[in-house]
Design a protein around this nucleic acid. Sequence first.
DNA 1: GATGAATGAGCTTTCATTCAT
DNA 2: GATGAATGAAAGCTCATTCAT
Lengths: 198, 198, 198, 198
Amino acid sequence: MRTSDKHQKIIQAAIKVFATKGFFSARISDIAKEAKVADGTIYLYFNNKYDILISIFEEEIGKIILQVKLAIEEEDDPRRKLEIFALHHLRLVDEKRDLAEVLQMELRQSNKFMKEYRNTRFIEYVDIISTIIHLGQERNIFRKNLLPGVAKRAFFGALDEMSRLWVLAPDPVYTIEETAQQISDIFLVGVSNLPAPA
Amino acid sequence: MRTSDKHQKIIQAAIKVFATKGFFSARISDIAKEAKVADGTIYLYFNNKYDILISIFEEEIGKIILQVKLAIEEEDDPRRKLEIFALHHLRLVDEKRDLAEVLQMELRQSNKFMKEYRNTRFIEYVDIISTIIHLGQERNIFRKNLLPGVAKRAFFGALDEMSRLWVLAPDPVYTIEETAQQISDIFLVGVSNLPAPA
Amino acid sequence: MRTSDKHQKIIQAAIKVFATKGFFSARISDIAKEAKVADGTIYLYFNNKYDILISIFEEEIGKIILQVKLAIEEEDDPRRKLEIFALHHLRLVDEKRDLAEVLQMELRQSNKFMKEYRNTRFIEYVDIISTIIHLGQERNIFRKNLLPGVAKRAFFGALDEMSRLWVLAPDPVYTIEETAQQISDIFLVGVSNLPAPA
Amino acid sequence: MRTSDKHQKIIQAAIKVFATKGFFSARISDIAKEAKVADGTIYLYFNNKYDILISIFEEEIGKIILQVKLAIEEEDDPRRKLEIFALHHLRLVDEKRDLAEVLQMELRQSNKFMKEYRNTRFIEYVDIISTIIHLGQERNIFRKNLLPGVAKRAFFGALDEMSRLWVLAPDPVYTIEETAQQISDIFLVGVSNLPAPA
DNA sequence: GATGAATGAGCTTTCATTCAT
DNA sequence: GATGAATGAAAGCTCATTCAT
């Protein structure tokens, strides 16, 4: 069996188990059972339990960043870029719910127990937004008095909070598309370089 | 006695320790040492480790909700109410950083390992926002086509993400006031019942 | 129960278990069972399995060195001092067989797996012999052309090898006294069939 | 094939690894790497880890016994025979340090964890000495009141203890030849400052 | 014969919880 | 009520051994 096979099987199993029980409550034996390998096999591919989590971060976020950047490049308008980012983000959460959950919760917890790990991939992802905002400001579409560090986080936070709702209780009330649209709307109107309402 | 000295000392110690190490990495003996009581004493006031966490949620969020509701009632304008909520939320994060961190991270993780616990207090807190939004819609200040479940989370998410930034790396670049103002601005302009830009 | 009690009980249990099975084959649970404490209790008194072994070395050899030095000081003649050392050493092996076995085997192995531990106590013990030899040379009782580093080890090695015999198969053929006498004799006058020195 | 290339390679690798880390700390994969074979290959030649150790004992001591007996037969005088034994023993330790270390430490420990293995080869080796002593007593060269079981072990122990010194810290202070001579001297004539026998 | 990926039993160690004092 | 020594279940990880290739 090819090495990559087992590596991927374990990663996918770990995503599922971490999503369900959380990193700490997850047992190596849970992951092994889910991946249909022996406990010891996991240690042929990963140094320890933390290493599995880090690998999820690195590998899966890496893939996502690539996809999103690709999708955004196809549009020129910063407003459309933001809409696409929102849509992409929420679709991902819907399609890869377990992964989304792990990234959302465990990734942010991780600095507590993995002191040495600096999560640069996550920062890279969020910075896609600030790049778009800068672009919008340059083109005079977005307000110049936007604080970039705040705006990017406001947008990401809005999406992220919706994701949480989705992850906890998949909500058939709003579709992904209308949710993405709604958030983009609120945000875009909010940041537009228009005369403030009288 | 529920509000006994020891009870509070343990709660405050636990907040500090949970904030620093996370719930799972925190040991009962850490909390005991921080609270300057014996390990066993903790079990006179709490049933187990989970119970301490739940108590933090219930008691501390309870206090916060009371404060925020009080502050909001003093204003009539929904726009001002939102601004006050934002300011209040961020001030709290700044003043009670440890508590903020526990609420932000552990509370959301909790459903993973405390299956039976339904976190109604948190929902109650976030619903303060939706109440304001409804009010704004009734008074024709906010757009009617806002999805209330989305808008409330978009606003809370934006604040929450800023809090995370604050908690991880206390940022002297933006003041609490300008951050709150900025987020309120983006959101208020975005939800205002004005003709959409051409 | 006094702290010292448990510490001693564990040390004594460990001596017995290490003597019987060797350090590596010995399980913490074996020691705990022998000491009639829970497995975890051992870790209240020792950092880890190695620490138990080191404690045996330090504490028990310390006691022995004290005793031997005391016994030797009572005699003036270096020849008698050597005889007393031999007798004392072999008596100890007989009386504290398990301890002797641990010291004999595990102590010497220890540098293999406890790289950082320097066994100064053992060297201190063997150096009691060289001190006696030096004294004998000063008084012109022992040959001046004796290499001190060799002679001390020759004497200790002879005793040690007898101890091993004793430990492996307690031998009723020779008494401790005649064995000690025999080794002292060989060392003091050799094996040649010559008229003993007057 | 018993004397196959691989069999020998594994034995030699195991001697090196056991000498360095000790039997228990040595991993099969260490030996395999040292022998430049796959882990599994070892099990084509040996039943298990213990079996490798036993094979070292049997085969390597076997060779040594042959050599020593041959060297001793060339001399007639029991005193010379003892000197040759001493010299041969120490030379061996010097030339085959790793093997010496394994035989010295692991062989003696072995009865602890390999209950069923009786180490007859080692006894055979030490009994070469007692044979010499008996011969010396028959010829009236050695004292009749020597206890043979004690004398043989005294001599062997002296050599063995020197070996340990050599193994732990190769000592350039004394040469092998002078060390062997010194021990033989002490044993043959003792340490007393008397005119050497005519 | 040779390989080395896979196995899983079994170990040391941790730490929430208890309870005699 | 308060203590903290003692408990023992539970889990991460290692590594001798196997076996499909």
